[in-house]
C-alpha cells in the first residue's frame, strides 16, 4: 500500500481490508496533474529554455511531463516565445486540436504581453491570451528553467483543485 501511505489525501484504506475508497474526482485530478504531457512546439528563444528544462539537468520528466509530438495527445501547451500575427492562427489551430481538458502556459514576456515588441511593432501579437485562454503566466525574457518548473508546479496545483463539473465546459472562457 505504498501509494496509499504517500497520498492520504486521496485514498482511505478500509480497516482490515484490501480496498481503498477515494473520490473519483480526486483520483482523476491526481492522475492528470501527475502526467501533464506537453506539446512539442516552440516559437522563439523561450523554446530553447523550454528544451533545456526538458533535458536532463532540470528534467521535466520528474513531474511526469513528457513531450508529445501531436496536439491530439497533449494536455498542455507552452506558448514559448513571440507570437506574431502571422503565427497566431496556427497557434489557435493547434490549441483547438488538443483534447479537453487542455492547459496553456504563457512563457515569457512576449507570450504574456508582447514583451520587448509591445511598442512600435507591426507584426507581434500583444499577448497570446488575446486568442486562447491562458492558465499560468511566467515572467522573464526568457524565464530560467527554474521559473518554468515553478510555473508547471503552479499548474499542477490548479489541476488538482478542478471539479468534475467543470470538465464539460471551459470555465476560463
Amino acid at each position: 500500500m505504498g501509494v496509499v501511505s504517500k497520498l492520504p489525501v486521496y485514498f482511505e484504506p478500509i480497516p482490515g481490508g484490501g480496498l481503498v475508497t477515494a473520490k473519483l474526482e480526486q483520483v482523476l485530478d491526481w492522475g492528470r496533474a501527475s502526467s501533464l504531457w506537453y506539446m512539442l512546439f516552440g516559437l522563439a528563444c523561450c523554446a530553447i529554455e523550454m528544451m533545456c528544462t526538458g533535458a536532463s539537468r532540470y528534467d521535466l520528466d520528474r513531474l511526469g511531463m513528457i513531450f508529445r509530438a501531436s496536439p491530439r495527445q497533449s494536455d498542455l501547451m507552452f506558448v514559448s516565445g513571440t507570437v506574431t500575427h502571422k503565427m497566431a492562427p496556427r497557434v489557435k489551430l493547434l490549441y483547438e486540436q488538443m483534447a479537453e481538458p487542455r492547459y496553456v502556459i504563457a512563457m515569457g514576456g512576449c507570450a504574456t504581453r508582447g514583451g520587448p515588441f509591445y511598442y512600435d511593432s507591426y507584426s507581434v501579437l500583444k499577448g497570446v491570451d488575446l486568442i486562447i485562454p491562458v492558465d499560468v503566466y511566467i515572467p522573464g525574457c526568457p524565464p530560467r528553467p527554474e521559473s518554468l518548473l515553478e510555473g508547471c508546479l503552479k499548474l499542477s496545483e490548479k489541476v488538482k483543485k478542478e471539479k468534475l463539473s467543470d470538465w464539460s465546459r471551459d470555465v476560463r472562457q
Binding site: 500575427h85 502571422k86 511598442y119 512600435d120 511593432s121 507591426y122 507584426s123 501579437l125 500583444k126
Partner: peptide, 25 residues
C-alpha cells in the same frame, strides 16, 4: 513573403506607418 497572406494594411516599414494593434512608444 514575410507578411500574412491576407495582409491589407499597407507597407509597415514606411516611416509614420500605423495599423491594427500598432502601439507607438
Amino acid at each position: 513573403l514575410l507578411l500574412p497572406e491576407d495582409w491589407d494594411q499597407g507597407h509597415p516599414m514606411r516611416k509614420g506607418w500605423t495599423g491594427r494593434d500598432f502601439i507607438v512608444k
